[in-house]
Design a binder for these strands. Sequence first.
DNA 1: GCGATCAGCT
DNA 2: CACAGCTGATCGC
Length: 368
Amino acid sequence: MSRFTSPVGEGLISVDRWTDSSQAYFLTHLHSDHTQGLSAHWSRGPLFCSPITARFLLSKFKGFDASLIRDLEVGSTHTFSLISPLNGGDVEVRVTPIDANHCPGSVMYLFQGELGCVLYTGDFRWELTSERAKLSKSTLLDALNGEKVDILYLDNTYCNPCFSFPSRKDAAQQVVDIIQKHPHHEVVIGIDSLGKEHLLLHISESLKTKIWVWPERLEILDLLGLDEIFTTDTSQTRIRAVPRYSITQNNLESLNTMYPTIAIMPTGLPWSQNSPEKGAYTVRYTAHSSYSELEEFMKIIRPSIVIVMKGSHGFKVRKKEGKGKVLASVRRSRVNIVRKERRGVKIEECDEICTSDFEVQIGSDWSS
DNA sequence: GCGATCAGCT
DNA sequence: CACAGCTGATCGC
């Protein structure tokens, strides 16, 4: 444990982390909690991401130096070289970006080479009933080719047995059903600046209608070639996708003084409650893995060590005194878990990756 | 005045 | 509570 976490020399690789010095920077997707510290003036070094994320990045940060972007074909293995701060020699690294099925452009990164075998999931949904996730699984297993994952950085947002979600396809149909039961209502659907495009597409196709979005959102949809089904003209549709934070009880009541309106919240968050009598519907549509999906994932990966990236309502997280450090303790599993502090990760070079430092403790909960 | 960071909120 | 944000205050340039 201590050998990995104690920094030796300069950092080599940073993932979703932009505040300290590394030789290569990786971005999993363009949600804002993964880009804190990134700006149009980025100059620290090469930034690796998927081609779609590169497109979003240049749109979000106008004036970004495009020569720093290394867009990597998803599903392929790429090789690059870093300089060892220990001996000045080359450190060869293989990286495989794998579709994370979280939002457009989102990827996980599998790093292999002298650094060891490190899998960084970023935010991901391991929804194996979908063809896309099945493809991600085979890409991952092919790239691993039997190699053991030394360190897994895991999105554990919903890693608690109380979270079970329908497939996004089924959840999308639930939204369509709600809309069809209100044929004379206006409909507002809460979304963020990126994500849930497949939900909106499903609604548009099922109901043969365009969907209103705000102008900045249409720019993002244009980058995906989806401009045909969206509009910024309210007269063309009764269905509007609006910023999630704009859907409040007060706003819904105000809308209803003008026209009968229902609100639909696609979310996995447990405190968003369904209140049909108030015209407020919650549908469990989420871009994060459910507990059982995480279980499926862990059965395949069986890493030596897991570092979880979230954790407030996932694993039972226990605050440890001093320095704001947080360690996770897991009651239902004996997997060795450490919670990463703050955002992203900096991967340092070690004298060697010594897997015996990370005793394998895969518990029966993962393996049964 | 501008950009970066943070507190507070949903 | 906070998926992934938004707004507003403050600080340094």
